[in-house]
Write a protein that binds this DNA or RNA. Structure first.
Lengths: 118, 118
DNA sequence: CCATCATATTCCCATATGGGCATGCGTCAA
DNA sequence: TTGACGCATGCCCATATGGGAATATGATGG
C-alpha cells in the first residue's frame, strides 16, 4: 500500500510544497485559481488539482463569483497538526542536550581508545 | 513528477501515520527496532524502512549497542514545522468568524430571494 | 570460524501522485 | 444563441512509496 491517501489527511495535504505555498498566499485573502496558478508559476490544471486536495481536507473553501471561484483559507484544520507537533516541544529543547550528551560519550570513548593505542 | 521525495523533507516524513506513531513511542525513550515493530504490529523490515526515512530527515538518531540499534528521538527538526503551522494560528481563530460571516451572507441572500419570490 | 540474533537491504508488486495536455462545463457578454 | 473566459476533470506517463518475502550484513557467543 502506498502512502496514505492525501485525501482526508491533512498531514499529507500540507506535505506538498506547492500546496503549502497556496495556503500562504491565501493568508492575504481570497483568490481565483488563475491568480494562484500564475503566482506559483504552474499551469491552471495543476493549481486546480492542488486546490481540490486542500478542499477535500477542508483547508480551503470556495466561493463562486461569476465565472471565477474564489478560494479562501480555512486554517482550522491546521490546529490539530500544530498541537500534535507541539507535543514534541519539550523534546526539541531537551533533545539538544541529549544529543550533546551522546556526543560527549563518543568523545570520551575516542579519547579512551587513543589512550589505549599509546 | 510524483510527490516530493520523502527524504530530506520533514513534512513528508511525518505524513506517514506509522512514522508519527514511531515518533510518539520514542517520546518514552530509546528503543530497538524489533521493539518498535512489535508495538506497531508491523514486520521488522517495515519498521526499518520507516526508521530510515526518519533518520534521513534527522528526526531520530541511532546508537549501536551490541547487536541492537537503539533509536532515539531528535525532535529539533519538528520545530520549523511547528512554526510554519503556527503561522496560521491567527487564522484558525479568525477563520471561524469568516466562515460564519459567509454563512450569514448566504442566509441573507436566501431570505432576499424568498422575499423576491413572494 | 560457525551459528544465531538484530537489522538493513533488495526485489517485486500494487497503487497513489504530480505533470502535461485535451476537453468538458458553467457563466457572462454580445 | 453563440463565443469567450475561468475552472474542473479525465487520461496517460513517469516515478516514489509502502508492503511482503527473501537475503545480506554486523555483532555476539561458543
Amino acid at each position: 500500500m502506498p502512502r496514505a491517501a492525501t485525501t482526508s489527511d491533512t498531514f499529507n495535504a500540507i506535505a506538498e510544497p506547492q500546496r503549502r505555498e497556496i495556503l500562504e498566499l491565501l493568508k492575504d485573502g481570497e483568490r481565483p485559481v488563475l491568480d494562484l496558478a500564475k503566482e506559483l508559476g504552474i499551469p491552471q490544471p495543476s493549481a486546480s488539482k492542488h486546490l481540490r486536495v486542500l478542499r477535500e481536507v477542508q483547508l480551503v473553501r470556495v466561493r463562486e463569483v461569476g465565472k471565477q471561484r474564489l478560494y479562501g483559507l480555512d486554517a482550522r484544520g491546521l490546529r490539530p497538526i500544530h498541537e500534535w507537533v507541539g507535543g514534541f516541544a519539550e523534546f526539541w529543547n531537551e533533545s539538544f542536550d541529549r544529543l550533546n550528551n551522546y556526543v560527549q560519550e563518543l568523545k570520551s570513548e575516542a579519547q579512551k581508545e587513543n589512550a589505549d593505542d599509546n
